[in-house]
Design a protein around this nucleic acid. Structure first.
Lengths: 215, 215
DNA sequence: TTGTTTTAATTAAACGTTTGTTTAATTTTG
DNA sequence: CAAAATTAAACAAACGTTTAATTAAAACAA
């Protein structure tokens, strides 16, 4: 029953470098030679281990996708105290999920814009659906308890959740990359921004779900 | 004082095709030969008119950027009745701005993820700043009138505005592209989604700005 | 432990394509 | 006739990938 070691050290090294370069410069702007140089392996090793550049990207995707899928399951089974607590918990866990996989999400967001089919397309689709289900469950729970308004839109909320977090992180990175500050300061500011995002997103969602003054 | 005709018919044709292919398949996955074929011109015409593929992208960007900048000016000078009306108007105009330039925004979102410097970088930065100023102005107005809470975050709100609209449109497109429906039905659904987005984003923002039940 | 064989890993070089771009000749336009 | 537009062809560079040769590691028999 023990989990097989899927990738050896060298393979993991290649995948790590590939992820970073794909995320920072884009898949097409990253050559196999770039990856090989930074991973300190021969160019032929990529084909030898992964078959092709496409398959390497796929391997990187599957690798992260598995752990993301697991994260979703954890969130879905979480039992919060109140309806609003559940919404808070979803936001927390979703932000954590993205914050812990920043490089992968940068890559994913970029690729999701042009994908039309194939395994990567399917994976991204599954994640979006999982996110919507998550929001739907929490919303319905609150509605049944009579705490949340009935006229809320799950598709909209899901878009806001994903889009806001993405944009907030992108803006933060965008801003930090062009300031002359130390790495430590960078991480502090990044952390502050994430915490602010957390607080305000919760407040905004709960206000949207519970506010009775707006029509 | 008459506006010079910047681009002749053929140039505009090339730019239109380039924008579409860049947006749909990505800049790097689009070859000059692809553009030339669909625009029904010789490959050499791109270099002849624009200098290079890079410059063509830049020309496409500048072209749209100018009209976007103009749109921002209109929004910034708008005089709504109440503080909430002003917020509503900003959301309306921002959504219209993106909805009317869907291809360009798809391209821009994608490229903004990997740009590190250069003219395109500067343009995108200006747009982000303009958006933040816009939100800031409306928020301060409402706060001075005592209608809005004091503890709201402009950086956060700007991220939510841009991110939510982007994500909503991306999700809608993603979903529609894989349904067997006519173009007319597609447009109807797209329009519905945009209207829902409008309504709910306004409600959410105003709830966030005015709600007094949440801490 | 040895020596031997087999498999896996690693390399430099080459391959065929595609890419963006340029050239030089020709046609169209003013 | 001169300038602009258009073309087919060619160019060098970069790309992903493969090949064939070599080295390192693992497996095995004595």
């Amino acid at each position: 029953m023990s989990e097989k070691v899927q990738y050896n050290e060298k393979q993991q090294q290649i995948m790590a470098v590939a992820l970073r370069l794909f995320a920072e410069n884009g898949y097409d702007k990253t050559s196999i030679r770039d990856i090989a140089r930074e991973a300190e392996v021969n160019v032929a090793m990529v084909s030898y281990y992964f078959g092709s550049k496409d398959k390497l990207l796929e391997a990187v995707f599957i690798n992260h996708f598995k752990s993301i899928r697991a994260s979703f399951k954890v969130i879905l089974n979480h039992r919060g105290d109140s309806a609003t607590d559940k919404v808070s918990k979803i936001i927390d866990m979703f932000i954590d999920m993205l914050a812990n996989r920043q490089l992968f999400h940068r890559l994913m967001i970029r690729e999701s814009g042009i994908l039309k089919q194939g395994p990567l397309f399917d994976m991204i689709n599954e994640m979006k659906t999982a996110n919507r289900r998550l929001v739907e469950k929490a919303v319905k729970n609150g509605q049944q308890l009579g705490v949340f308004r009935k006229d809320v839109d799950v598709f909209f909320m899901s878009s806001v959740l994903i889009g806001s977090v993405n944009q907030n992180m992108a803006n933060t990175r965008y801003e930090l990359e062009h300031r002359n500050i130390t790495k430590e300061q960078r991480e502090i500011i990044k952390h502050e921004r994430t915490e602010t995002l957390r607080t305000h997103l919760k407040r905004m969602f709960i206000a949207y779900l519970t506010d009775t003054n707006t029509p």
